[in-house]
């Protein structure tokens, strides 16, 4: 269970990105986080693994207050939380293999980093992860030689290396075309259903939210403005979405809401 209580974030320049946000995510949920650009989705996800320091509030995961953690304890929690990004955030000049292996850094002895060494088991794990995302033949390619969809699958493989119990996905398909978007989200769905990972995924398109999410929260101007279950989402109309999104709401594929 992930419990977010009264979470607020004010940036140094005075921007209030999150305002008193509270919600709960049961283990094994696929939580869709919706909202316009700048509504605080990225800030929210990054507060959960403390890439961004919250200004106030608490984040309790499996009974541990993540906001209280320091140093080694924080890193141990982080390694159980995989993260994938809109821009993939791979090291473009490094090979696919090294990018995937870097997901294992939370487990390896830091001294190994100086000589770029990973234990044999980790290399085997990385190969297995690449196999799982269907990229084992690309392991020696430079990351930037891959297409966008492939890069995002490397991102997923990197997250798998952490053996996470929760995945934070920040607009994972916003840079991809609709077909690839489904392929990536299908993979996340598998991790969610078969591996039992909790997934927090910010999404932009209405039909993707309806297709994949088991729960939804909606943010507008840093405030939580909507919270709904699977059934409630599926019964939502475009008008309901527009209340959250404003008039710019759109579907990734034109047509009616998918079942």
């Amino acid at each position: 269970m992930l419990v977010v209580e009264n979470l607020s974030k004010v940036y140094d320049n005075g921007t209030a990105a999150l305002k008193d946000v509270s919600f709960q995510v049961p283990d094994g949920a696929f939580l869709g986080v919706i909202g316009l650009s700048g509504s605080g989705k990225s800030t929210l996800l990054r507060c959960i693994n403390r890439l961004i320091e919250p200004t106030s509030g608490r984040i309790i995961w499996d009974g541990v207050d993540i906001t209280e953690l320091r140093g080694e304890e924080l890193r141990k929690v982080r390694r159980k939380i995989g993260m994938i990004f809109q821009q993939f955030n791979l090291v473009k000049r490094s090979t696919v293999m090294v990018n995937v292996l870097s997901g294992r850094l939370g487990y390896t002895n830091p001294i190994y980093a100086l000589v770029n060494h990973f234990p044999k088991e980790d290399r085997d794990k990385a190969l297995a992860a690449l196999e799982r995302v269907g990229l084992s033949d690309k392991k020696d390619n430079r990351a930037d030689a891959l297409s966008g969809g492939q890069q995002q699958r490397v991102g997923i493989a990197r997250a798998l290396m952490q053996e996470p119990t929760m995945i934070l996905a920040d607009e994972p398909v916003a840079s991809l075309d609709p077909v690839l978007a489904h392929s990536i989200l299908d993979q996340l769905e598998v991790l969610n259903r078969e591996d039992g990972m909790t997934v927090l995924c910010s999404l932009h398109y209405l039909d993707l939210v309806q297709r994949y999410s088991t729960r939804v929260i909606g943010l507008r101007d840093g405030r939580l403005v909507y919270e709904g279950t699977r059934e409630e989402i599926r019964n939502m109309t475009d008008e309901d979405f527009k209340d959250i999104y404003g008039q710019e709401a759109e579907r990734i594929t034109p047509g009616s809401i998918m079942g």
Partner: peptide, 10 residues
């Protein structure tokens, strides 16, 4: 981006 991603792995 990569700094963020690697930090997030712990």
């Amino acid at each position: 981006g990569p700094i963020e991603a690697v930090t997030a792995t712990g």
